[in-house]
Amino acid sequence: MKASEFLSGFLKVVESGLRHLVRKRMTLRYPEFLVVPAPDELFGFKPGEARDTNGLRGRHLLDLDRCTGCRLCEITCNGISGAITMVKVEGQFPRNKRGIFPSIDYGRCVFCGLCVDACIFDALFMTDREELAEYDRAALLYGPEEISKPPKELPVKIRAKRAELILDERRGAHHVQRKN
């Protein structure tokens, strides 16, 4: 390799590196900011259109009034992760005479969402909540009452602001806070 060739190649590398000093930072301060790329929609299955809605696959949401206790979600999950078991819930449910509803063990769930596909009664959805860490493994077992309520807002201290990815050819990819 000639000295001139070496020097020009080296200088180009340094120039490429230095240009990034003035570019916007791509990394995200995670606990304070959270990227939610999907539209704010629940991940669910539309049997009529034979497709899923676009949404992040996170914690489930169960509609107790629509669930018939048909066990289709449990049967599907049995071959995948075995996270769903049916449990009995006290109370009167006109569509669900036996009163059995799915409970989900998030220590096992792989968030494939195929249980949502299996539900033909439009009762099971997925929310975009992915932060499910607990100190205790038993706390990861969510009963029907827990998954029938929308996820709780996180405490203000760790509540994330939603960020959006901006793709700019000149200034580089970076995040800005989402307005809505």
């Binding site: 790329p37 999907a38 676009n54 997925m126």
Partner: peptide, 20 residues
């Protein structure tokens, strides 16, 4: 590693998951 994220976010938008 950073540029992977761009397409992973787009894939998440389409499918609902980033990797699997």
């Amino acid at each position: 590693m950073a540029d992977r994220e761009v397409l992973m976010d787009l894939a998440a938008m389409l499918t609902g998951a980033r990797v699997t």
